[in-house]
Design a protein around this nucleic acid. Structure first.
Length: 262
DNA sequence: ATGCCGAAGATACTTCGA
């Protein structure tokens, strides 16, 4: 089973790239963030023509998340938003795909540590913590994928000194990421790569991608049951080099068969 | 110290992203 996540920064603009990427990378589930599409505007037919079912939670201009699921896969228990959290911003969609619980999330950016949006981010992170905790009790085969807007440690930042205590890198954000791991989740990328210098987001400005200056903020977290099956996890920089790219790159994980004896 | 780029809504600039 193959899972991936990609912040597309407008699905309207990036639709041809999403279809191209799925053709080149026929994953079972692709989690999308920042659709920037009103709910009725979702390109269901185009996604279906590419061989995928669509489940989405759209919002005009901002936010919006989707699960693209390979045709033929069994999809159950689709859930939008965090239950019990009345959040106007549409950032979460979940579903069970062929027995694996998938949560796709667009974490709050926060703007800056002295911003009111940062307080919203911390509140949102605590709600996500509770949500993931309760999901794990129900679904042992669990994966959380998305744009976390958190660089877990200094290996994930091109200039840790410049980013020290800044949004994406502040201690409270990193502590929230660590708390998610403490629920029994593993950062799939770090199962295979201990070195720094691999990033998933590069600022459009100042030719940051060309200069190799980025941040790793898009992640795939796996429960113990899925961690055992993980074979590889890679960041695909290819689409970041295309014309009119998203500022984020897709992240992909390959899971082997479930060999556990029931 | 600030903007750089890019998307979107509005309609010539502003808001937001990270």
């Amino acid at each position: 089973m193959k899972l991936a996540t990609w912040n597309v920064n407008s699905l309207k603009v990036r639709l041809p790239q999403v279809v191209q990427w799925l053709t080149d990378n026929p994953v079972d589930v692709l989690c999308l963030q920042e659709l920037k599409l009103d709910q009725p505007a979702f390109p269901v037919a185009e996604i279906e023509a590419a061989g995928y079912q669509s489940f989405w939670y759209g919002q005009k201009t901002y936010n919006g998340v989707a699960l693209l699921v390979r045709a033929g896969a069994r999809v159950e228990q689709v859930e939008c938003g965090i239950p019990g959290y009345d959040d106007e911003q549409r950032r979460v969609i979940a579903a069970t795909v062929d027995g694996v619980r998938i949560v796709c999330a667009y974490f709050v950016n926060g703007e800056a540590v002295d911003s009111p949006k940062y307080l919203y981010k911390l509140k949102w992170l605590s709600m996500m913590q509770e949500y993931v905790s309760s999901q794990l009790l129900r679904y042992p085969a669990f994966a959380l994928l998305g744009d976390f807007n958190i660089a877990p440690d200094d290996r994930d930042v091109y200039d840790p000194l410049a980013w020290k205590d800044k949004v994406l890198c502040s201690e409270p954000e990193r502590a929230a990421f660590t708390r998610l791991l403490a629920l029994g989740l593993s950062d799939a990328f770090r199962l295979f790569e201990a070195e720094g210098g691999q990033y998933s987001w590069w600022d459009y400005r100042a030719a940051m991608f060309r200069r190799g200056l980025g941040v790793r903020i898009d992640h795939i977290l796996l429960s113990a049951a899925l961690r055992r099956r993980a074979v590889e996890c890679t960041i695909d920089k290819t689409p970041r080099g295309w014309e009119r790219p998203s500022d984020h790159a897709p992240v992909r994980v390959v899971l082997g068969p479930d060999n556990e004896v029931a």
